[in-house]
């Protein structure tokens, strides 16, 4: 496995490098002089030059880039122009909220996606198949924000049982915190879970046609064991891949979900920073998100190899 990780390293580094270059170039693509913008309309040329020197904008792009990258590695993420605070502090304040949401949504995604898929793929009763396929199709067509609004309408307005706005940290108060978390997490996870479920379902159907299943039946293996050991294990591959690929979408979806449920997480920080042209913050968020997404994909491939010994990570 270590050999595999070493071999995989160049492509991971390449993606991260390209992303960091894009993130670095963003403010420089904007027409106009950021120093002049910062200084305000009545600033003297001396002030603008001083700001430019302070931000390092008078140096060549390569030097600026290397300096910025050095900062990323040493934990100096720059200073937000909007909040006048270090970016690391701003992110540190909000990462808990987004992590809670992403972890619960990720768990729901895996459990509901695979659970629904297995239910639809293993049962041959018509009504259960109809029910699972029906829910799958409905949720498949529904993006997280619509699912979120629907959940708000049903569980926040029609039957007000759960809070629909704001948040309480799960760590400080688990009972209340989970109540604030449950609707956003469901809204984020369910539409993607529907996609995963459909993959598992179709895969299970095709694996059931394989010869080794017939052989196991002929040997007299109990049907429960056939499903667990033979069908299920061979059906999860595409679902695992899909979960890994969709992890980036999960993070992006969190931005919209945070907006709808008025949660103060990284997504909200990214949005307010984009509105205020606060580049220092956005750059870090972009690099961080892509980093997490790439890591999720690596993890996927390792899981895949654990599921299927025929795949060698060499």
């Amino acid at each position: 496995m270590i050999r595999y990780l070493v071999r995989k390293l160049p492509s991971v580094v390449l993606v991260l490098l390209v992303t960091s270059v894009i993130a670095f170039s963003l403010p420089r693509l904007v027409p106009g002089d950021p120093a002049a913008l910062l200084a305000g309309p009545d600033a003297s040329p001396q002030t603008i030059a001083a700001i430019r020197a302070e931000l390092g904008l008078d140096q060549p792009y390569v030097t600026q880039y290397l300096h910025w990258m050095q900062g990323l590695f040493t934990g100096d993420l720059g200073t937000s122009l909007q909040y006048r605070r270090p970016v690391s502090e701003l992110i540190g304040d909000r990462i808990g909220s987004t992590l809670e949401l992403a972890v619960l949504a990720g768990l729901l995604l895996v459990v509901a996606g695979i659970g629904l898929g297995v239910a639809a793929g293993s049962s041959n009763r018509r009504w259960s198949r109809f029910l699972t396929e029906g829910t799958n199709t409905t949720m498949l067509a529904m993006p997280p924000f619509l699912a979120g609004l629907l959940l708000i309408l049903v569980f926040g307005v029609a039957l007000p049982v759960l809070p629909i706005s704001g948040e309480v940290s799960v760590l400080s108060d688990p009972v209340i915190g989970i109540q604030y978390l449950i609707l956003p997490a469901i809204a984020l996870a369910l539409p993607m879970a529907a996609g995963i479920a459909r993959l598992v379902q179709t895969q299970m159907r095709s694996v059931q046609q394989e010869d080794f299943v017939d052989l196991a039946t002929a040997k007299g293996v109990p049907s429960g064991r056939i499903y667990r050991r033979h069908v299920l294990r061979n059906s999860l591959g595409p679902a695992v891949v899909a979960i890994g690929i969709r992890f980036g979408d999960l993070l992006a979806g969190a931005v919209v979900i945070e907006a709808i449920f008025a949660r103060n997480g990284i997504g909200q920080l990214a949005v307010t920073s984009a509105q205020a042209s606060d580049y220092a913050v956005i750059q870090v968020v972009i690099v961080g998100t892509v980093f997490v997404a790439v890591m999720a994909q690596l993890l996927t491939e390792i899981t895949l190899a654990a599921l299927d010994p025929r795949i060698r990570l060499a």
Partner: peptide
């Protein structure tokens, strides 16, 4: 992710 692209 599409939304991040939009923000950029």
């Amino acid at each position: 992710p599409g939304l991040l692209l939009g923000i950029m």
